[in-house]
Each structure stands twice: as C-alpha cells, then as structure tokens.
Design a protein around this nucleic acid. Structure first.
Lengths: 359, 359
DNA sequence: CTGAAAGCGCTTACAG
DNA sequence: CTGAAAGCGCTTACAG
C-alpha cells in the first residue's frame, strides 16, 4: 500500500446540515473552550465518576455545542484496542448471515461500535492464522461466532489466548453462559417430531446435515427424543446423512422413497434439503402432503415460496445476533456486574401445508 | 462507553504457531535491529522509491523475521484515514448482499484492508447524517455503494464533500467510468425479450420493481427495446408496477391473468416476483410453461428450486463486488495511473424450464 | 476532584 | 538516500 497525500478536511455547508466546520473539533478544542485539561475532558468522555458535576456539565455542553465525537482511531491507539466487532462465520446460508449482521448492528446502534465481517472456511489450512491476523491487526473489541466456527475449540482457545472477548451462537451450550447464545435445536426438532406424531405418522425419517455441524446431531437427537415421547422411535434405516445442500436433499430423499416401506414423513436438517425432497418426490410421483409430509428447519423465505408451502422450524435469527452483541458488550465492558439478562432463544414450528395425516 | 483496563499482551505458544512473542514488534524494534531510523522503516513499509536497495532488503528481512505488521490504527491516525472499506447498501436481497461482500473481500485479500458493513434505509430521515457519521468517524478508506443507495445523488454529493472515495454499482452509468460498475440491466432484459420472441410469444407482459430503483426502469426499457428489435412491442396494458417482493408478484400476476387477453409470457423485475407469478398461476389453474412462460431476474438460488425451474437473467454479483473494490483501491491509491482494466459485467440468460412456445 | 508529562505506533514536514 | 523533531488525538501513570 502506498502513502497518500493528506486530504483537505473541508466539509460543505450543504452536506452536513448545520454545524459543519472546517475541521472537526478535537479533545484539545473542548479542553480549551471548557477551561479544563484534556485529561478532564477524557474523564467526561469515559464517564469517570471522579469529575465534579458542574465540570462535567460544562464539558458536556461544549461537546454538544461543537458536535464533538472522540476519534475512535486515537482512542483505540491509546486503549490498545479498537471499537470494531468482528463477525466470524462459515454458515453458507446468506439469509442467516445477513440477519445475524443486522441483529449485531441493532445492538450496537449509537454505541460507536461498528461491524467488520470475516467469512472463513475451517477446511482452509490457513484458517486459524487468518483469524488470528484479523483479530490482532484490528485489535477487535470482540467477536461473534456463529455455527460451525462457533463450535471450533481450537479457534476459541486461540481467542482466549489473544484475550479477545467472544460470544458463541450454537445449538447447545458449549461455554460459560455469558459467552453463549443457545438456539436449543433439540427442542425445535422435538416440536417437529410431536407435530408428525400428532398427525398420526408412524414411519418417519430424518435427513441430517453435515456431521461436522453440531446442529446435525442436536436436531437428530431432539427429533428422536420427541418421537419417543409420543411412543414412536426413529429407526436407523430411516436416518440418512445429507450435507445441508439442495442436491444432498434430492439424493437422500430418493434413497428413502425407494425403500420397501418408504416413510410417510421426512424431517430435514434445513430448508434447502427440504426443497430437495420436494424435487425427489415430484420425480417419484409422490404427492406432498398427500403421500408424504415434509418439515424443514430454518423457516427461510424460501419455505413459504415452495409448493405446497413448507412447514419449518423457525429461529429468531436477527434477535440471536442482537443478543450475542449485547452479551459481547457486557463481557468487554467487564464492569463485573453481569446483568441478569438471559434472553432466551426458543425455536418454534411454522406450520404450513406440507404436513398432513398419512393416507 | 467506559474505560477498560489494559489487557495483557501475552500470546501462548500453542496458538500462533512458531514466532509468537510476548509483545508484537513495533516500528521501533525493526529500526533498532536494522540499524536505521524508524522513518526509513516507514519508507520501506510504504514502498517509497527513495531507499537504497540494500537498506530496503535488510529492513524487509528483519520485518519478515519478526513477522512484523504495521499497526493499522497507528498508521491510520498518522495518515488521517483508516484501512477500512465501507459497504453501504439497502438492497433487500440477502444473497445479493452476501455475494457483494464476498467479492469485496476477494479483492482486498492480503491488502490489509477490511470490510465494514452499513445497511441503511433511504426513507429514514436520519439516513444521510448516519452515513456521514459512519464515514467520518471511521475515516473510511472508501466505500462501495450498491443499488439503490448507489443511485442517490445527495449521498454521492456528500461523499465528495467528505472527500471519501467511492465506487457505485448501478444498472446504468451515473458517474465517471473509474467510479462505476455498470450492470447493463437493459441488455439483460433485452435478452429475455429476444428469448420470448424467438419462442413465438406475441403477448408479453412486464412486472416492474419499485420505481425508486433505477433497475426497474432499465429493465423495462431494455425489455421493450428487445421486443422492438424482434418486431414486437411492450404494450402499456401489459406493464404492471410491482415492488420487488413476492406478494407484489402475486398481486400483479393475478391482475395480468385476469385480463380478457392475458399475456402468454411474463418477465419480472426479479426472481422474488417471479415466484409470486408461480403462485398466482397455480391459483388460476394456469400451467407453466404450457399456458404461461415466466422469466425472472437475478438467477438467485431459488430460481433453480422452483418448479418448473425458472429461466432467469444472471448477474455475476460476486465479481461485481470484487471489481468495485478493485476500482476503489485504484481510486484511493491515486497513483494517477488509472489502469486500463475496465472489467465488464454482462448479464446472461440462464434458460431453464419455465419458458416454452405459446399454445 | 484535577492536571502536566509521557506514551500508544505510526507519519509528515523539514533538513541535510 | 537518510534522520531528528514534531505531531496525529487520544489515554495511562503519576502527582497533587
């Protein structure tokens, strides 16, 4: 990267509304106008309790008047950390990614924190090194991890070593409560199981996601437990391993539908694979939900676009992002006063038209 | 935000691989070990040509040995800008957003630049102020704008005032070539028109997107021109205004299918609305492509999941993000030597099974 | 409760 | 081609 000539710091009258000035105010301007030292201004900025009320009010008045905002870069350099939150993810679902991003931004609004995104690939040999560079170079305020990187113990050990605050979003608790947003996938899958059992299904199948994702196991476990609650069981022959992709859904469903006693209902690890089940069913002349009930997971927008509209387990993804960032801020603030807020993320079943009683 | 105690800067042996040290090397360490001033190290970092080759090599050797990487925060403070690229967007399509993000990251790999995301809403009265704060506080290296914010002249005027480099992705050229990635939407729509004309359609309709998006007009214009090339015309009665949403697609298609002489083909401004056309067609007992051909725009993953698979105009979205970031880097480097690279973004038609000749 | 000095890790402006 | 000084806009550590 090459050096770049200094840019003029002018701002036009038209753009910024009113109080735009030639140069942005600095802590020195505030200190001079308030008749105090810059250290005192610094104390006000950082909400130190050791400032006389009148002093604080006077400084705040000047700050407001000039529209002063401390320079995060300078603050960061002195603090030895930045005001950037990193989102580290490898989830292939764009809807999921964008919603978590939105949720994080919901949480940091007006806090001066910003969001830096870091997609990655655990299979890449440089994976850990790249994350380390990312975290160290940016001196991140903290990071939010989503599945499946949130399940990577090596990664988490590294973050601890780097002293980088983190919060993990995962299907099951893997860490201290103040570092976890648990999505209770087993509970969501159990709901799907009960729904099918209530409809009278006896032969139900499960298409799992990639085994490297914890959610695959949790969803299977919850589904099996939900069935057992209702006096049914998830038979091994009715469990097929997919890969969270449309194509794997097609292949797994073909396999299930070709059985001597094919299942009358299929629960899939996500909506993408459910879409694959639709295709396989159509090809096999199997009607949904007449011959086959289908339930997906994620309740992506696609679920409602399929025909018939897909019953699916819904997750409040944007809220999950917000909760994660809120926890991260608590963690990094390190006030000692861990707030009691333990926001609960509970999956629910969005029942549509892809499920009905068996023939 | 409250002040935070200094974190210890230790790094374990296990995490960072080999050369992890207690404290990261600084420019002073390099200068001392190389026996030069820190200014000279700075020159090497910034690729100044005014360094003797031997000096440069010696400094680079030490930099490599210690794994030294200049602190972007400190550099930024001195440079009066950061090494962060902002992506400002209001596109509601997550697939689009994630792909552009990926493309930007493709371009900045190993450059030391990082990506900060800023979703926004032009209808929000605080829209411009928020973007200004974002750009000023972060002293952004530059920003990438996607539709529809890329079409906002007030926003662009503000960025110029702030002296913030920007590149705009839009359906038609709106700025100097070095600031534009043009997606040629009219050309894409014309391809759709030709495809339908070739199949023998005479009564073809268009469902437009939101009129506040330039793409809506470009796609309509290109579609009309494409038809005219083939001796057809886009009749006003066959043009309906949608809103780029699934629901608007359903409503507009109902309207078209209820006409005395309904169209035998519908081209929609995006795939979401095409999905809505599918639903309306099914409700009306109209079969696709037997009774009605449908073409979407975007070629989103959903296009291939619909039944029948949707013919759609494809855009290389990830490449667009990459090209945009590459142009931004050229722009911000301001070397004067605008490279001749004028990467071309050309839409193409992905023909699937939703189009056929009319009955 | 408040401040003067030194420092965070770089760069610019000026000399040589 | 190279360097000593001053500065970017903040904070820490130390006094008072």
């Amino acid at each position: 990267m090459n050096s770049k000539p200094l840019r003029s710091q002018t701002a036009s009258d038209s753009a910024g509304g009113n109080a735009t000035v030639r140069r942005r105010a600095t802590i020195n301007d505030i200190a001079r106008l308030a008749g105090v030292s810059k250290k005192t201004v610094s104390r006000v900025i950082n909400r130190s309790p050791f400032v006389k009320v009148e002093t604080r009010d006077k400084v705040n008045a000047i700050i407001k008047e000039l529209g002063y905002r401390p320079d995060p870069q300078a603050r960061g350099l002195a603090f030895r950390r930045s005001f950037l939150i990193g989102m580290i993810y490898d989830n292939p679902n764009p809807q999921y990614v964008v919603n978590v991003q939105q949720g994080i931004l919901d949480a940091v609004r007006d806090s001066g924190l910003e969001l830096v995104v870091h997609p990655c690939n655990r299979a890449d040999p440089g994976f850990l090194d790249q994350v380390q560079t990312f975290v160290e170079q940016l001196k991140l305020f903290g990071v939010v991890l989503t599945p499946s990187v949130s399940e990577d113990d090596e990664l988490v050990a590294m973050l601890r070593d780097l002293d980088c605050p983190y919060v993990r979003v995962a299907s099951v608790s893997l860490d201290e409560a103040e570092r976890m947003i648990v999505t209770h996938d087993a509970a969501g899958a159990a709901e799907a199981a009960r729904h099918l059992a209530d409809l009278g299904h006896r032969h139900v199948a499960f298409i799992s996601g990639l085994p490297s994702f914890r959610s695959s196991h949790e969803r299977r476990r919850g589904f099996a437990e939900g069935l057992e609650e209702c006096g049914l069981s998830l038979e091994d022959r009715y469990v097929v391993e997919g890969a969270y992709t449309y194509d794997s859904g097609v292949a797994c469903a073909r396999q299930l539908l070709a059985m001597d006693t094919p299942p009358t209902a299929i629960f899939t690890g996500n909506d993408e694979m459910a879409a694959g089940v639709y295709t396989a069913a159509r090809d096999a002349g199997v009607s949904i939900p007449g011959d086959l009930s289908v339930i997906g997971y994620d309740d992506s927008p696609m679920a409602a676009r399929l025909w018939p509209p897909l019953t699916s387990v819904r997750l409040p993804i944007r809220d999950m992002g917000r909760f994660a960032a809120e926890k991260l801020i608590e963690l990094a603030s390190a006030e000692g006063n861990r707030s009691a807020s333990q926001p609960d993320v509970r999956p629910g079943l969005a029942v549509r038209e892809s499920t009905a009683g068996p023939r």
